[in-house]
Write a protein that binds this DNA or RNA. Structure first.
Lengths: 232, 232
DNA sequence: GTTGATGAATCGTTGAACAATCCTCTAGCT
DNA sequence: AGCTAGAGGATTGTTCAACGATTCATCAAC
């Protein structure tokens, strides 16, 4: 009986992979990638005809992809004007951090009731970031950092929280483009993350929460300072 | 200067009404209404051709409306099979309540720094519910209850939290269909809501949070009991 | 009773067409 | 010169028709 429940779980976990076939979703994947890595900088207008020809899909399909990404807040759709890569305002950055504070501190407080695997994931992403830093891949350090924070929210073991966090962080990447040097932005937080992970594993949730909140303050301030400087 | 800011605010508030010209969004509005009020019960399959003919729009437009509602978690889209009215599992209900606990308790804790208007909104919706109860309109009591909880989350003054809450509650309405008697489900909470609002205004946030958590426990248990009974 | 094939129904995607809207550029005015 | 008005072109919004792809239900065979 438990063996059977085992398959069932594993098979149903594999199911989403099979469903992944829609052309609109594939197009959305490609565009998402290019928006996140900065190939399509914020403010860029995405012409239906141009992109459609480039990717070899019809306008109708492309429009579905645009809708998908608009709902992820990566694109904005202006009626009769077209779709543009989202430009995050300073207020958006502040709002994203506000929501992260809520979700991630809730995650830290739930660390006591979380599974050991979930807590282990947090530490794993710290190590992933350290490894990336040693090889000098600062973009990878950035993604490891995001996974670290997603792992913290994942301590809540809530699918909806996970999805919300994933979307928040994807949105936040739009703001990272204003940061020139990736290294100076990501490097200092490696230590912070390691300390927070240790505190979580030791069970000192209260201090972990304080450290996390301190991180949010400095990171947000750093981003907003870069915003003010570049006068976006 | 303040007079001018007045228009600006009022005009920009009226703007969404003008932009609301897209056929897909109008169709989405109609469908949302019918899903929420139960005319289209969970599990119903929405055929593109049938609905398209019924509403007099093309399949392409209809598909865009479907995407909109899928993203609101009211419909589910299965590749090559069509779209269906979402069927909430018991696990979904539990997850929705988990996220509500996080957001709404954060809202209560932020009541101290919230504007008086925001706190006033909470009480206003309590009174709205009481008025609806006196006229025996239990569906209206239900929507007032939802607005009450949205107002609590709105104490955080975060657009993203507001949107998340709106979506969570819309989703939750799908679960309410298993409750037979609306009155027995909504009436008891009128008193709870009034008490919580009073505690918030008095500034006793700690007790307000405890009361709120107690409400979540009983409401969730009541819903899940109904689920178990109807064996959905 | 399970397996495998057939066919109808529906979805996925494309391409073309036309209306509505926006943008740009020019012409005309003060 | 500077500004306004308007014409024209480009792009989006929406619909329609068509065809390939996939699912589901039916039925025959083992």
């Amino acid at each position: 009986m438990t063996a059977m429940a085992d398959w069932a779980a594993r098979l149903s976990a594999a199911r989403p992979v099979l469903d992944r076939a829609s052309a609109a979703e594939l197009v959305a994947d490609v565009l998402r990638e290019n928006v996140i890595d900065g190939s399509l900088p914020p403010g860029t207008r995405l012409s239906e005809e141009t992109i459609g020809n480039l990717l070899g899909v019809s306008r109708n399909t492309l429009r579905e992809a645009f809708r998908l990404l608009s709902h992820e807040n990566l694109l904005v759709h202006e009626l009769h004007r077209g779709v543009f890569v989202r430009k995050l305002a300073a207020a958006d950055v502040a709002d994203i951090y506000a929501m992260r504070r809520i979700l991630e501190t809730a995650g830290v407080r739930a660390a006591g009731t979380a599974t050991p695997e979930a807590v282990g994931e947090v530490r794993r992403h710290v190590e992933e970031g350290q490894a990336a830093a040693e090889s000098g891949d600062w973009a990878a350090v950035g993604t490891a950092n995001m996974r670290f924070h997603r792992a913290i929210a994942a301590l809540l073991a809530s699918p909806r929280v996970d999805e919300t966090m994933a979307r928040l962080l994807a949105e936040l990447r739009l703001a990272f483009h204003v940061m020139g040097e990736l290294r100076t932005f990501h490097e200092p937080y490696l230590e912070d993350n390691a300390r927070i992970a240790t505190l979580l594993i030791e069970g000192d949730h209260e201090r972990a929460e304080r450290e996390l909140l301190a991180y949010f303050d400095t990171a947000q301030a750093q981003l907003l300072a870069a915003y003010a400087e570049r006068a976006v």
